[in-house]
């Protein structure tokens, strides 16, 4: 593969954007972990809040997906 400074930048950028997925994973873990901690303290209230849990996870995960998308764009579209 012949050297091309633009390609180098693309791949480095894609790799950096991939870090965002890991950050989103931390966020999702926070949401789920805190939900579990709360649910174990007050199990009777947990059933009514699963919808909120999924909404929270979805919001946290969406940002990770954005970074994944940026990585893909750098890899294939730029």
């Amino acid at each position: 593969m012949e050297g091309d400074i633009a390609q180098l930048g693309q791949f480095i950028g894609a790799g950096l954007a991939g870090i965002g997925s890991g950050a989103a994973a931390i966020g999702v873990g926070h949401v789920a972990g805190n939900f579990l901690a709360g649910a174990l303290r007050n199990p009777s209230a947990a059933a009514g809040q699963t919808a909120t849990l999924f909404i929270g996870i979805a919001f946290a995960e969406a940002l990770g997906i954005f970074s994944f998308l940026i990585a893909l764009l750098l890899m294939f579209a730029v």
Binding site: A58, F59, E61, A62, I65, F66, F68, L69, L72
Partner: peptide
Amino acid sequence: VSHSIRLAGNMMAGHA
């Protein structure tokens, strides 16, 4: 934007 990209991105990422 987030509504659509969440779904498409999740499906695309998993399959990829």
